[in-house]
Structure formats: structure tokens, C-alpha cells
Design a binder for these strands. Structure first.
Lengths: 339, 339
DNA sequence: GACAAAATTGTAAGCGCTTACACTTTTGGC
DNA sequence: GCCAAAAGTGTAAGCGCTTACAATTTTGTC
């Protein structure tokens, strides 16, 4: 193919015998375009292989044709799954997906919020994955004028998809308690410290409450979502003298890490210690990890779809919705009755 | 913060007492700007918190300020790691990272190449991760005028970073052979079939050659890079009667899947079958998987840096370079002498 | 100090699109 | 058939930036 002049809306206008303006409207399915014109434009456009210049469109006040996915990290299983599922939806809707990983770093996070105003003119929408927001951040997000949707968040003024985290944690903990364990350790999400209590931690606590037990501070430790994080956290917990008979990890990868750490300390699972996570990572089945399964790709795709809808009707007022998908306790081999 | 008029280059021009043109040049560090002007502009810009509009800049012929990362899938460990590492580099250099996952689908892949011309005006550069290209695709990439760099590719006319795949596979296979195995199965990358032989497959074959052995077709099976893929592949291999005493999987996740499948078939590792992979996934240590370790994040970051450099000096002619990082055999518990 | 060459700065014309508004055609009620 | 309202289409003015090219200032030389 010869490197020729870029196909512009002008070319489509000439070929279809209509004005640029009409072409622009036809292409965007705006009202006040006759069926005939619509057809001519569509034909001319496809014949020329025309695609609007995102830059020009954006500059003139149209859309950028891209959305950003913001995640605390892009490497953890949950995020990689959700990101890919969302990217697929966005791609099918014609949007480019800009990936922004906060890399679990406070500085990167601040940078992100400081830059929000600029980001707002590079993308049309934002898909937030499990970012725990403080009120000022929510405000900043609202103020920037972007369409927003999220996965795994709570009390946000936009569409959200997630699971009932508190319930999932409760299910996991309840399972442990039902097996006779009461010295429970929890590998809680790091955000625990940033904001206040995470829902999963609350679920854990509520389950203990139900049994008139209280959370022992020595048996609580924060951890990131990676295997190494979980391993470090569990090691730390044991190093400072913690001797739980069961461990609830806020995600499967952290649970894997816990499994490693326990083994390194000569403890066997489930003989000495029971372990349960949340996720149902593909590895969990193999390792026999008991867990609370959640549909991850579904959440990403669902939220992405909601965002696309928002993007289509930016005018329509909209009541933020919150969708909770089901979770399911899966008992495998890392949990058993306390002897 | 009050929602005010966007800060434009005009504002910076007025505040600095210079013309738009000079400001534009100063901001981009072009020659022919006095130090004084440079200073004034920098000051004014930072005081106003000015950031150029990507859309306007692009439309006027400047850069888009974004680069795309193209990966066969975004969920596999290798890709998630490489993507995040590259995203960090790009972010630090001021680029937005557009994620494009081919999702291992031929249609998506075709779509990508068909759309290349349009993509070319939405991003400045392309970072390709392990995409096996046919000649026409390489041409298309070259023709689109984008700066390109890649990870894990061979014989490409742009900068590449990778490992010596053939050698890594040879190392793994050689290890198996050294343990007395000669009925070797290989879980080869799917691309095997698309192009011709993958380097890892060649490395496998060469190791056999060295021992005057030949590849048994029944013991070769293609697989994707996920755990489930590996499990399916190994199952298929055994279902059709394959009874290897050792298995070389082209990546650790496929090896994990193989481990699952073997266990499901009542075979124990390493007693009945030895298994080795390539990667050194964080899980491998825990599972005792022997493997050939490769630096993944390093590759992503390195390639991203090379791309950024290219982007900075688009004029300078450039000799494509190929950088191979070291790999290392790690013997653990899934490989042992054939009895 | 005068003058050409070099360095710096400014002017203005787009880049390809959206959109307010003006204009033309169609529709429908009587 | 006539006319107002509705529907469809076109004109032209930007959006914020880059970049020829023109204008101005500085530098260096004899």
C-alpha cells in the first residue's frame, strides 16, 4: 500500500456528495440526518476505510476514544484478569485502553490525582479497580468531569460492580470457626491501614463476633496482593510470636504466600494450621486451597460495559448502581477440624 | 478548585511575555531558544501548571504522548510482569500506556494489523511482547511509521530485548537428558504451529540431537501460556497415549498445568515423571518446580527504555540492537534421575 | 563603527474535527 | 395548493498546538 494522504472527513464528504458537517453527524449517529445521507456516508466511509482522527475529534470537543483503567497493581492475578476482560469490552466498543498502575506506591497515587485534570482531556472515562478512596479523592474524580465506573468499591457516586466483600470474608471465616478454630490470624489487605477497616476485615471480625470472639491484634497483619507479600506477612506474623491454628488471607495469592511461610516454619497444612483465601485462583485447585470463589473477569467486563453505556449517554442523568456478584465457599484440603 | 478555563499555551505565552511559538519551542527543548526565554517559559508553565493538550499537539503534527504495548495475552504471568514494568518506564517518561491484548485470537490479531494505520496516529510507539510475526506483518509494522521495540522476538528490524530462548530450552532439556531421560515430551508454545518452529522448540530439539535422539511427534503438543492451557495440553498428550518420563514445558505456568494433569492421571512427580519449565514464577519455588529462570520485569523495562530513546531521537538513523539477558537453570524437586 | 551572518523571536496558516447558526427542503393541516 | 413548522443540510468559526517563513536582534569581523 502506497503511503498516501490520510483519509479525512473531507474525503468522505466529497465522495458521498455531502458536506463535512453532515458526514460528521451521520458518522456519530446524531439526529437530523436523512436515511439516504446516512447510507451514502456509511458507504463512502467504508469504501475509503475512513476512521476519525482521535486527536482532531478530541480537540474539537468530541471524544478521545480512549478510557483509562486504574489499578493498584497490574501484576496480581485479580487485576490482570479484570484488566484483560475490561480491555476486551473497551476494544470491542472502539475504545483504546490506557493502563495506569499505581504500583502500590503513595507517590504514584498522588501523582495520579494531581494529574487528573490533564488525564481528563486524554481519556473519556475511568475504570477504577479496587482503589480505596478518601473523600477528597472522590471529589477530585467527580470534579474532573470524566465518566467513572469501578470494580470492588463501596459508597461511590458512580456505577460499581463487585462482590459482597464483607460477606465473602465472613463466609471464609465462618468456615474456619465452624471447624473449631478460634485462634484466627488474618492477612488483611494493606489498605486496611490507609483508610479504616476494609470490608473483608469487617467480615472477618463479624464472624468472630458471631461466636463471641474478638480479634487478637497480634494475629492481624497487612499484606499486598502478591505471593511474596503474603509470604512476608505470614513470616512476620509468626516471627512476632503469632501461633494461629487457622489463617484467613484476603486473597488467594496471599494465601499461597502464607502456605509457603508456614511450610518454611515447619508447620504443616492443614494438620497444624488451616488456611483459606478468597478468589479461586487457577492454582488453588491444584494446591487444594480452600477459598471463596469470585467471578473476576465477569466483574471487569461488567463494569467496563457499564462505563461504555455511560459514555454513550453522557447527557442522561443517571442513578449510580451497585452490582454484587455471587461468591461461593469452596472447601478443599487446606482447612480441617481443629484437633 | 474552581472549574476554570483550561490553561493553554497562550496563557503561558502571555505570562512569560513571549510568543506562542517561542513557548512551544522552549517547552520541547528545540534549538534556537535563548536561555533567558527558556527560563521564563519554564517558570510560567510551572506556575500555571501547564500541560500541553495531547490532542492539539498530535493534530498539529507533534507527538501523541502515548505508546501501545501489544501482548498476545495480558493475563499470563510473564506478560503481566513485563507490562507493568514497561508501563512504569513509560509513565516516568510522560507517556500514556495503551494496552492491546491480542487475546490469542487470530481475529483480534488480524484486526490489529488492519487497524495499524489508524493506531499509528493515536500513539507514537509500539512495544511488542512476544508476537511471532510473519514477514508481511513486519512490513506493515515498518510501513506504519511508528517507533517499535520488542521483547522476546528475533530477526526484527528494531530494538529487541530477550533471552536466548533456544539456549534456555536447551538448558532445560539438557538437564532432563543429563538425568537419564530420553522419552521427552514437550509442551511447546502454540505459535509453534503458526510460524514454523519456535526457538524454544529448536533448543529442545538440539539438545536431543546432541544425544542422537529424535523428537517423537506423539510427545509434542502445543499450549498457551496459562495453567489451564498446560493442563489441557498435558491431558491431551496422555490421552493419546503419550507416556514420557520427563516433560519440558515452554513456561512455568504450562508446567504447573502439566503437574496438575499428571497428578490427575495418578502419576507422581518426580517419581514417575520429571517436569521442568522456563520462567521461575513465584509459585515455582513453592512447588519445587525445576526451571530456567529469566528476568522478566527487566526485559520489559529495558525494552521500554529503548523505545523511549528511539522516541526522543526519531531523526537519528539507528541500528537495531538485540539484547539478550542471562538465564539460569534452577534444579528443584520436579526433576530427578530416571530409575 | 559598519555590515553580513548567525541567533532568536514573531506571524500566520493550517492539522481534522465539532457545532452554533443560517439556510434549504420536506411535511402536513386546512 | 398555501404556509408554517419540522427536518435536513451547509457555512464558518474555532479547539490548542506545530511549523514554515518573515522579522528582528545579536554577534563577529575588518
Amino acid at each position: 500500500m502506497v503511503r498516501t494522504h490520510r483519509v479525512t472527513i473531507q474525503d468522505v464528504a466529497v465522495l458521498s456528495g455531502l458536506s463535512i458537517c453532515t458526514v460528521s453527524r451521520a458518522l456519530r449517529n446524531l439526529p437530523n440526518v436523512s436515511e439516504k445521507a446516512q447510507r451514502q456516508v456509511a458507504e463512502a466511509a467504508s469504501k475509503l476505510g475512513y476512521k476519525a482522527s482521535a486527536a482532531a475529534s478530541r480537540l474539537a470537543g468530541g471524544s478521545t476514544g480512549s478510557v483509562a483503567i486504574v489499578a493498584p497493581t497490574a501484576t496480581a492475578w485479580f487485576f490482570a484478569q479484570a484488566v484483560e476482560a475490561a480491555e476486551e469490552v473497551f476494544g470491542d466498543s472502539g475504545y483504546d485502553t490506557v493502563l495506569i498502575s499505581l504500583r502500590s506506591k503513595a507517590t504514584v497515587r498522588q501523582q495520579f490525582f494531581a494529574d487528573l485534570g490533564n488525564l481528563a482531556q486524554r481519556v473519556d472515562g475511568l475504570l477504577l479497580l479496587n482503589i480505596d478512596l478518601v473523600p477528597t479523592e472522590v471529589e477530585a474524580l467527580e470534579a474532573c468531569g470524566l465518566a467513572v465506573a469501578s470494580v470492588g468499591m463501596r459508597n461511590v457516586p458512580w456505577d460499581n460492580v463487585g462482590i459482597d466483600d464483607e460477606h465473602a470474608a465472613w463466609q471464609a471465616t465462618q468456615h474456619l470457626l465452624g471447624l473449631g478454630h478460634w485462634d484466627l490470624a488474618v492477612l488483611s489487605s494493606n489498605e486496611h491501614s490507609v483508610v479504616t477497616e476494609t470490608p473483608r476485615f469487617r467480615g472477618f471480625k463479624r464472624a468472630l463476633d458471631d461466636h463471641h470472639l474478638t480479634v487478637h491484634p497480634d494475629l492481624v497483619v497487612g499484606t499486598g496482593p502478591s505471593i511474596d507479600d503474603g509470604r512476608r506477612a505470614m513470616t512476620e506474623l509468626m516471627t512476632r510470636g503469632g501461633r494461629p491454628t487457622a489463617v484467613f488471607a484476603h486473597c488467594d495469592e496471599a494465601a499461597f504466600g502464607a502456605l509457603m511461610a508456614l511450610r518454611e516454619h515447619g508447620l504443616s497444612v492443614p494438620k497444624n494450621v488451616s488456611v483459606i483465601g478468597i478468589d479461586d485462583h487457577p492454582m488453588s485447585w491444584f494446591l487444594g486451597l480452600s477459598t471463596v470463589a469470585q467471578p473476576v473477569a465477569d466483574q471487569g467486563a461488567f463494569a467496563a460495559n457499564l462505563l461504555c453505556e455511560r459514555l454513550l449517554n453522557t447527557e442522561t442523568p443517571h442513578q449510580p448502581s451497585n452490582h454484587l456478584l455471587d461468591t461461593k465457599l469452596i472447601e478443599r484440603k487446606t482447612t480441617r477440624h481443629k484437633r
